[in-house]
Amino acid sequence: MRQAPLYSRSRRAPAGASSVAPETPVAADASPAATPAVAPSRWRGWFGRHERLLWGFSGAVLVLGGVAGWQAINPAARALTQADIDAAVRHSLEKEPLPSAYAKAYEIIAPSVVRVVGTDGDEPDRAKAEATPDAKRAKPGPLPKAAKPVPGDRKKQTASDSPEPGEPHLSTSTGSGVVIIDNGTILTNLHVVQGSKKLRVTFADGFESDATVVGVEPEHDLAVLRAKSIPDDLQAATMRSASDLRAGDQVIAVGYPFGIGPSVSGGVISGLKRDFRSPQGQRLLNNLIQFDAAANPGNSGGPLVTMDGSVVGIVTAILNPTEHRTFIGIGFAVPIDSAANAAGMPPF
């Protein structure tokens, strides 16, 4: 049996061998160049089978590289903390402080507050009214010796002064009021206008008009006035029931104390459902709001206002056991619920 020839891996022929190489059998389907091209063909085939995967991988690498480069150029902002927010708020408040709650409430109610001047003559004297708010009508009488006029230095007569010889007597009083209907309906105290033959009101923009009494409610010391003419764009106050008031709630009193104004003072509700009898004992008022915002003669008839700018009461009296009639920390207001009834408005 014939054996297949054995081949040496050495390229050199063994010693003594013939220079003629024996004939080597070749497979029928083999080609001389097939053996050296095996490895490159495998890589080409692998790349061909995974071409899409390679392109996707290359794109992802490029995107990640771009993102990394952008972040290197533009580093991410630091996350805000509560300390950062607090510091920004403090800076804003220091630069532009917010108005107080009192100031906001006054800004809302100011266009609706009026000055009310009453006189028992034909022509009210504004200087006299400003000097003697809520004054009692003076009666003619002899001039006290200590108050005799000095030639060349005649003082102006006020409601608390007696008339000088040869001068007509004119008594005036000044109080406050608040517009409750934009047709010129004004709410004030009855004692501000009682006994006056002529009434004149001055609105917030300086516009003046005569006024008449169209309604009274003596049990609550309230009077309703109607101005004969009104300014353009007259603004009525917003009224709010006093039923939800609590002791400690902040309020402001707005009016013309001693004819000076409009003036605003701030305080709190001191109590509810209080009773008060006038110093003369002529009238007992009940279900009043007690407050400690400063009020003086001339504030009568003005609004008592909450911090949202709503009217909850009409300032009507102050308590002072002395004869000075000045504020010592206790003021009273009629709840707006009663005042609305006096104006013929539906209750809250």
Rank of each mutant, 00 (worst) to 15 (best):
Gly48Ala: 15
Pro40Ala: 12
Ala146Val: 07
His220Trp: 09
Ala83Phe: 04
Thr238Arg: 10
Pro231His: 00
Ala211Arg: 00
Glu94Gln: 13
Glu96Lys: 05
Ser41Asn: 07
Ala83Gly: 10
Lys197Ala: 14
Arg78Cys: 03
Thr81Tyr: 09
Val89Phe: 11
Gly281Arg: 03
Gly16Val: 13
Ala83Ile: 08
Ala79Ser: 05
Ala343Met: 02
Asp292Phe: 00
Gly301Gln: 05
His50Glu: 00
Asn287Cys: 02
Val150Gln: 15
Met345His: 07
Thr158Trp: 09
Glu167Trp: 12
Glu130Leu: 10
Ser196Val: 09
Ala342Trp: 01
Ala79Leu: 11
Leu225Thr: 04
His169Lys: 12
Thr24Pro: 02
Asp210Pro: 00
Thr174His: 00
Val305Ile: 11
Val193Cys: 04
Val38Pro: 02
Pro231Gln: 06
Asn189Cys: 14
Leu6Asp: 11
Gln282Cys: 00
Tyr102Gly: 12
Asp29Glu: 12
Val117Leu: 15
Asn287Pro: 00
Ala101Leu: 14
Gly175Val: 12
Ser241His: 04
Phe291Glu: 00
Lys128Ser: 14
Ile318Gln: 01
Glu208Gln: 15
Leu199Val: 03
Gln282Glu: 14
Ala76Lys: 08
Asn189Pro: 00
Arg11Trp: 05
Ala129Met: 08
Gly248Tyr: 06
Ala17Ile: 07
Ser31Met: 06
Asn189Tyr: 09
Phe327Glu: 00
Ile181Arg: 11
Asp249Asn: 15
Ala147Gln: 12
Ala101Trp: 09
Thr326Phe: 10
Val192Leu: 02
Arg2Asn: 09
Ile180Gly: 01
Asp182Leu: 08
Glu323Arg: 09
Ser162Met: 11
Gln282Lys: 15
Ile318Arg: 01
Leu53Trp: 15
Thr172Leu: 02
Ala317Cys: 07
Pro75Phe: 04
Ala17Lys: 13
Ser162Gly: 08
Val213Glu: 05
Pro257Gly: 04
Ala77Pro: 15
Ser338Phe: 15
Ala30Ile: 02
Lys128Pro: 07
Arg226His: 14
Glu130Ile: 11
Leu98Phe: 10
Val38Phe: 08
Ser112His: 07
Ala28Cys: 02
